[in-house]
Structure formats: structure tokens, C-alpha cells
Computed example of a mutant assay.
Amino acid sequence: MKYFQNTMSSKRIKDMNVCDRPRERMQEKGADALSDEELLAILIGSGSKENPVGNVAHDLLSLIDQKPNLEYEDLKSIKGLGPAKGSLIFAALEFGRRRLPLKRRQISQPGDIYPLIRHYADRQQEHFIVTSLNGAHEIISIYVASVGTINRTLVHPREVFAPAIEQRAVAILVAHNHPSNMNGGEITPSSEDIDVTRRLKQVGGILGITVIDHMIIGGESYYSMLEHEVL
């Protein structure tokens, strides 16, 4: 099965081919085959004349990525998302947090974290994702530290470590997606990826927060620098 083949666009649902509509794709292939935007589009249902549901889902997903601790008032900034749909989305997010808590979930190997972050593989921009862990390597939180191409400017240790310090994390596991490889392909680290990881490990050593691994996700697979003994 191919995961996260995003078919959403600026088209209205009724103008899309039946086989490309999120609800029909979920019924045929299961929820795991849908991107985050498609899942949100099903919850939203429809957009407005000015902002089709695909755009609303995209805008909402961007907001969620940028602000993990979303408040109901934040949803008012999404054009085409009224109070009723906003309440439905906020209730769904809260229900998910209550029923599927990440805390106390122990990570013993890189593959354990992949199912929890693989949905970032369909993003059109690179997302730098951090998983903070306690002393027992149990998940404290998963957050997006930066959005954009990974380089010295956009991935700063401040954004990576600030939440982990606040959470009293003992270790972190970092990851990022390769947008050009969302349907499979090359996911080996670039020289920039390796350089960023080395810098983060140095900063982590000073702070007393171990950088366990740097994973690259794309399509249906991942590359672990720890498993490949790159560092």
C-alpha cells in the first residue's frame, strides 16, 4: 500500500474525480492511506465559495503544525471555517489527545517512532520534528521545531531544544521529511543533514540532553543515522 498520496487541491469536492475524493479513498483504502489534509477535509466537509475545502484543510494543517497547543480562538483565523466546523475540529483534536496519549510510550529503537511521525512525509515543505524523551525513553511530546529547507539558518538549536528544556527532557530524537521523495526514493542524508546533526549533538552535550538519532522520512520508509552508524 502506498501511504499519503495526497490528492487534495484547490478544487471543490464535487469537482474532483470520485476516486480522488477523501471520503471515497478512505472507504476503499482505509484511513492510513490518506494524508493529514485529506483527513481534515473529511472532518471539515466543505469550504466556502472563496476558499474550497482543500484550501481550508491546508490552512488548518499549517496552523496545527505551527501551534501544537491550539486554542479554539485560533481556528477563527482560518477563512472558510465557521464556528460549527471549528467546534467539530477542536473536539476531534481534543478527543484524539485524550484517547491516544503519547506519554508513557517507550522508544527502544528508531522504528518505534516512525509510525508516529510518518504522516509528515506528505508535507510539501521540510518539517524538522523533535521527539522529547524522559530518562526511561518515554515520549514527553512530539513537536515541529522548524518548517522549511534544512540549513544553518532555518534549523536553529534554540527552536529544537527550547521545548525540551522546558519539559525537563533527558534526550531527543530528531527527524525531517524529504518532500521530493514523498512517493519513495532517495532518503539518505545530505552533507547538510549530517552537519546539522553534529551541531545539535554538540549543543545537546552542553545542555545535558542527548540527541539519540536523526531520521529522514519519505514515502513509506525512513533512514536512521543511528542504525546506519553515520555519526
Rank of each mutant, 00 (worst) to 15 (best):
S180C: 11
G184C: 03
V130C: 01
A169R: 00
I165M: 10
G82D: 14
P163T: 04
E94S: 13
T153C: 08
E126P: 02
E94R: 14
I113P: 00
G148S: 12
G96W: 13
G80F: 05
L173Q: 12
I150W: 01
R118N: 08
G135K: 15
M182L: 12
G82N: 10
D112A: 13
V155I: 13
N181K: 09
I113K: 06
M182E: 01
S87Q: 14
S87W: 04
E159V: 01
H119G: 09
P101Q: 15
G111D: 11
A164T: 00
E94F: 04
V170M: 11
V174C: 15
A84V: 14
R104K: 14
H176P: 06
G111N: 14
V130E: 03
V160F: 05
K85T: 09
Q109M: 13
L100S: 14
T188A: 10
A136W: 12
S146Q: 11
Y114L: 10
E186Y: 05
H127D: 00
E94P: 03
V155Q: 02
E126D: 06
I89L: 05
V130M: 01
A162N: 00
A121Y: 00
G86Y: 01
S146D: 13
F128T: 00
T188M: 08
H119P: 05
I129E: 00
Y143L: 07
T153S: 10
Q124A: 11
I139Y: 04
R118C: 03
A145T: 04
L102I: 13
L154Y: 07
K85N: 08
A171H: 04
